[in-house]
Design a protein around this nucleic acid. Structure first.
Lengths: 233, 233
DNA sequence: TTTCAATAATTGGTTAACCAAAGTTAATTA
DNA sequence: TAATTAACTTTGGTTAACCAATTATTGAAA
């Protein structure tokens, strides 16, 4: 009986503002390099408090669409109007990422990280990675599980890859990975010993500066997770 | 003479708050699942306006560290304390990505996108991609250059890959790519015809559902950019 | 006529007060 | 005694007013 009711659309005021600004840009009234009208004018025009406008602008700035300079104004510096059309609407719901995509992408980034780390690692990186691995072992012995330490080891590999963007992207998806893991209990504890071995192998290849070996070891390490994610379907 | 002066660190109040909250978490006073003190108490404790605290919390929410529920409170739901230690400080300066890393990572994502798109594209995707390619050609004929339309074609490929995370990451780095391109004038116009041909080849492989072909075509397409980025050094 | 300085207006940043919803407590009733 | 409800407190959300820095304007002096 309740089926006759459809979910009401509760579009937040902030999203409304973003949508309106997007419209202004797509219609050509605002183009890259232009200064955005002052916040007061916008709030007046939109019939909403200045705070909400500020919020929307902050969100746009977060994604690099606009840049606001204190006591000066807000300028559009992101994509041109064409790309913006479909972009922001997607950016608004960037969080609804499915688990399969997450794992698939993570594997892609991880393998690349391992390969590049093997090519570019410094002596200092080796020490850092060894410490990270040891921290993981200790935590496992103490508490039996160590999701954060596990991820931390992987992040350190990304760091050793000397690719700042790669590392940034890893950082971005890491929270989602942790969330999925703890929610789905992917890591069953009895495989902890095996994971440590795999980590050690990856590290060995990185130390030996063997990119292909590191990539294969990482691929093997993440294979189980990939299998698991496919079964989730 | 001026060298004796070092740049003053103008740490914004927001960053200060984030740093303090991080400290609270790392020292164990706040752990995952805990409710954050109310904004009023925090602002009082930090000796700063509630607005600034709100701002910091919003930023943390963006990165998925905390989750705020209206009229209820803000809870910590992100990573555990260990990973957080080094995370936020890095996340704060996520934008200082160098061009070489950007290109390297872009190529990685693009090749994967092309391959997956060839595997998973629907009939509808084909139409969308053909339209995107045509829009690019038209813009080239009209104005001689079309950075946005170029990127838009690539984004549509990412969309056809049916990997939401992959697409999200592409969206995240796209603004930086555009910025770098327009700043460095990577695309010299005389190669427009060649680019169209390469795009067409990628599309052909996607239509033919030939992943390896698509990957190779994409790799070839981006090779020039990679060369350029290496010369930048 | 041009240049420069002082002042007025405009800008984003910040604060304090107010609002509605959620949670809590206590009193009243079955 | 237990359950329910009503009032009260606390919560984040929003608005309006205020602040300091910047920019535009205007007028005077060279």
């Amino acid at each position: 009986m309740l089926d006759i009711f459809s979910e009401i659309k509760v579009e937040s005021p902030v999203d409304k503002i973003i949508r309106q600004i997007r419209t202004l840009i797509t219609t050509g009234e605002l183009k890259s390099g232009d200064k955005l009208p002052p916040e007061r004018k916008l709030s007046e025009k939109f019939g909403v408090g200045r705070y909400v406008v500020r919020d929307a602008i902050k969100k746009l700035e977060f994604y690099g669409i606009v840049k606001t300079q204190p006591q000066s104004g807000t300028v559009i510096e992101g994509l041109g109007m064409v790309a913006l059309e479909g972009l922001i609407s997607d950016v608004l719901k960037i969080e609804e990422n499915d688990f399969a995509s997450l794992v698939e992408t993570r594997i892609l980034l991880e393998i690349e990280s391992a390969g590049k780390a093997a090519e570019r690692r410094s002596e200092e990186d080796i020490v850092i990675l060894q410490n990270a691995l040891k921290a993981y072992e200790d935590k496992i012995i103490q508490e039996g599980s160590a999701v954060e330490e596990d991820l931390l080891f992987h992040l350190k590999i990304a760091e050793a890859s000397r690719n700042t963007v790669l590392k940034s992207l890893m950082l971005i998806i890491t929270p989602d990975i942790v969330k999925s893991f703890t929610k789905l209990k992917v890591c069953n504890d009895d495989s902890a010993k095996e994971i440590i071995d795999q980590h050690q192998q990856i590290l060995d290849h990185i130390i030996a500066q063997n990119p292909e070996g590191a990539r294969e070891a990482m691929k093997n390490h993440l294979k189980d997770i990939l299998e698991f994610s496919k079964k989730m379907k």
